[in-house]
Amino acid sequence: MDRTEKLSLTSRLLAHVDNGTTDYADGLMRVPFGAFNDPELAKREVEVVRRHPHIVAHTDELPNPGDFLTTELIGTPLLVVRQNDGSVKAFSNVCRHRGARVEFAEKGCKRIFSCPYHNWAYGRGGELRAMPHAEDFPGLDKAEFGLVEFPCEVRHSLVWVIPTAGEDLDVRAILGDKHDGELEQTGIGASHQHRFETFDLDMNWKVVVDGVQDSYHLCQLHTTTVCPLLHGNIYALDPHGKSWRLVVARKTLEQIRGKDPDEVDVRDYTLANYTIYPGTMLVTEPNHFEIWTITPHPDDPNRSRTTIRLLSPAKPETERQVRFFDKNWELLMKTLLDEDWHVAGTITGNIATGGVGELVYGRNELPGQMFHTVLAEDVAKLTR
């Protein structure tokens, strides 16, 4: 973040604090309840989401050539492998012979991945290396029967995958040069993954996305957990394409007043959420990072999956440092499980049975309005 941007952001946020304002949408937005539980709409949303990048790992999980992990992304089984040259590739974890799962282990290190059904064997690069009784498959070109490869990129120490073959993936372009450069300056590229956990939720995925981007509720729902740290309903939002940077003022922001702007950094007094549409958030705080990956269930609009990663700037070297990041994780889990998801978890059920026809997003809920607008536009493009 250059000096001009720091000064501008500081000025915007302090003005919002002084005036009790925030960045606003032009007006109200109404979203029908059907947008959250219509099965046909949900299918089209899944198709949209499968064409965009999602974070599936931190590079700490794949330190050496041959290291692999298996996971599922919007119903697609993935095999993610560190290559001999240090790059990372992602494949469909499905054998090209009869469609069985190739690798059942959650993680490990291998040179060869053999399907247990008929022992078709694939190399680290996904190529078909061997098959029993190859003479019984006359005319089959092994070069054409490697594992299906998905677009994959490592950026900011994170492994990004689009679970649709043939799509273009350029994380820097998606973020934009300015926001990508800001993330690089935070040191996230040298980060250490302290904890991560995946949650299968009985919630529509858009309810979860809405919650992570919503600063309106911070001092209503989180009176003793988050509100002492952050200003509720005060943020600055800057879009780039379908992505945006959402900066929330910390309660310490007022300490900047009167100080030499070249001696303070507004990032030490804020929380920045770099949102990569449709459901990825890179949250930067002064002493750690949170990485969110939110995806719909492939078949059920009332279910979703969220993976959260807590990253430290470097690997903790002392027990005290470990406890510090453990406490950050514990606060995050308490806030989510006891407050956010405890309340937001009722929304999906209420949509089905509550007799209310729509949700209303205020002018102060600009991130939610932007998200629902872009998603609706992308879904509409599928039907043209």
Rank of each mutant, 00 (worst) to 15 (best):
K242T: 13
Y274Q: 09
W205R: 12
M203V: 05
L246M: 13
D202R: 14
D200K: 14
A190C: 01
R195S: 04
A249I: 04
V247S: 13
V226I: 03
F199M: 09
I308C: 06
D210S: 08
L282A: 05
K242I: 06
S312I: 00
Y235K: 08
P301M: 15
F196G: 03
V212L: 11
V209L: 07
I276K: 00
S191K: 03
T225H: 05
H231C: 08
V283F: 00
T252S: 15
M281Y: 07
E254G: 10
L253H: 07
V283L: 07
H231Q: 09
H288C: 12
P286D: 01
H297K: 02
T293A: 12
P301D: 15
L229M: 09
R267G: 09
Y269C: 06
V266M: 11
Q220W: 13
I294S: 06
V208A: 15
V248E: 14
Q255T: 08
E184N: 00
S191M: 03
P286W: 01
I256K: 00
M281G: 01
P278H: 08
K242R: 12
Y274R: 09
Y235V: 05
L218R: 08
I291F: 02
L310D: 01
P298F: 14
I276A: 10
L201T: 04
D300P: 05
G187Y: 04
I256P: 00
T270P: 05
E254L: 10
D265I: 03
H288R: 04
K259S: 03
L246V: 03
L246T: 04
E197W: 04
L311A: 07
D238H: 02
W205A: 12
G187T: 03
G258A: 05
T252G: 01
Y277K: 07
D260M: 14
G211Y: 12
L311S: 01
V226Q: 01
P239C: 06
R309C: 02
Q213W: 12
I188L: 08
V283H: 01
G232I: 04
N204T: 11
K242Y: 09
L282E: 02
H231S: 06
V264P: 02
D260K: 13
L218G: 11
H194G: 00
S215H: 05
T198E: 10
W244P: 01
D265Y: 00
A236I: 11
D260A: 05
Y274M: 08
T307A: 09
V264Y: 14
D265T: 05
G187S: 09
H288Y: 01
F289Y: 14
P278L: 11
D265W: 07
D299F: 05
V248R: 11
F289E: 04
W205D: 13
V226L: 06
D214N: 02
T252M: 07
H192W: 10
I188C: 08
P301G: 15
S243H: 03
R245D: 00
V209A: 12
D260F: 07
H217C: 14
I256L: 12
S243T: 09
R309W: 13
T275L: 14
Y277V: 10
H217V: 14
R303Y: 08
K242E: 14
L253T: 11
L282M: 03
D299A: 11
P228S: 07
